[in-house]
């Protein structure tokens, strides 16, 4: 992966993008660059402007101000060249229900350069729809349509792949399969993939870099590892299962252990700074036991950190959707 990262080239370049719909400013000076060989996660609560940005990037919406180029082609001046290099699913994948999956792809293929019959079959094979390609799309399940959508989006070997909420309607197995396909396309075939989502956990599993958008503004763009390690370097939360949480909390009040919170009658959550974590833990355990409180288990509250970063950044907005 390191080697690919080194030869990365910008594919989608968005600069100073502004968009107003009605009298509401949806996007405020959005700047964004995505590179070949990476999966870029576009993260934000509902209504933050993810879909609007994506729609503008693929020409479904007009832009008020700013510049967008795809694979070096300016979207406004060289619309057709730019779109030739772009594939995507916006909102839900929509197909003509009275045509078969194969025919839908064929219609799409005809408008692009150099898409052969073999390529259509190859792509159908890749998403596992070969056997049902002759069936009318009207009879497909949502998951199958989602897979056909992916097939359509990569059919013409685009350099940029834009997927808006791609895991909607997919079961866990389907989600994993999609994740694997996307990672392979980016890391092995060098596509630049933009995936939008409001699910941090999903981003964490497939993205190399994450951009967080809130109320039409880009708040942060960072590689996922940096984001995780930044989250971890501060503190971690440990959960203590004890016989009397309130008493234990009182005991810990004297220790320099970080913030202590009583979760319920027998659970205690403690923020422990990254440095000297083991020492602090040992000290806490000892204090609880010596204070005549039973300590049953101690566990790390895993992966909650990244979401906390997200919540922090979105000012608690749309917190309910983070899972």
């Amino acid at each position: 992966m390191e080697t690919v990262m080194q030869e990365k080239q910008p594919v989608l370049q968005i600069s100073h993008l502004n968009k107003t719909l009605g009298n509401r400013q949806i996007l405020k000076d959005v700047n964004l660059e995505t590179y070949s060989g990476e999966v870029f996660g576009f993260l934000g609560p509902n209504g933050a402007g993810k879909t609007t940005t994506i729609k503008i990037a693929v020409g479904l919406l007009s832009l008020d101000e700013g510049d967008i180029s795809i694979a070096g082609y300016d979207l406004r001046r060289n619309f057709e060249q730019a779109l030739e290099k772009t594939g995507g699913i916006v909102e839900n994948p929509e197909f003509y229900p009275y045509l078969s999956g194969y025919e839908n792809l064929r219609i799409y293929a005809r408008v692009h350069e150099n898409v052969t019959e073999e390529r259509i079959k190859e792509v159908l094979e890749l998403v596992g729809l070969s056997l049902r390609a002759k069936e009318k799309v009207g009879r497909y399940s949502l998951g199958m349509r989602q897979r056909l959508g992916v097939a359509q989006a990569i059919l013409h070997r685009p350099r940029l792949l834009v997927l808006d909420e791609p895991t909607n309607g997919l079961d866990p197995a389907g989600t994993k399969a999609l994740r694997d396909i996307l990672k392979r396309l980016a890391h092995e075939e060098g596509l630049s993939i933009v995936v939008s989502s409001h699910l941090m956990s999903e981003m964490e599993m497939m993205c190399d870099r994450v951009g967080i958008i809130v109320e039409g503004e880009i708040r942060k763009i960072q590689p996922i590892e940096e984001m995780i390690s930044a989250a971890k370097s501060g503190y971690e939360i440990y959960v203590f299962h004890v016989s009397d949480a309130a008493k234990a909390a009182a005991l810990l009040g004297d220790l320099p252990a970080g913030t202590v919170a009583v979760a319920d009658a027998d659970h205690l959550e403690v923020q422990i700074p990254g440095a000297e974590q083991e020492a602090t833990l040992a000290k806490i355990n000892k204090t609880i036991l010596q204070g005549d409180v039973n300590l049953y288990t101690v566990s790390r509250k895993e992966d909650r950190k990244l979401e906390d970063v997200f919540i922090e950044m979105t000012n608690g907005q749309g917190g309910g959707q983070i899972g």
């Binding site: 693929v58 479904l60 057709e80 730019a82 779109l83 994948p93 929509e94 197909f95 408008v111």
Partner: peptide, 10 residues
């Protein structure tokens, strides 16, 4: 299907 229709290099 308008999105299918318009998401093409034309």
């Amino acid at each position: 299907t308008v999105k299918f229709l318009l998401l093409v290099p034309a």
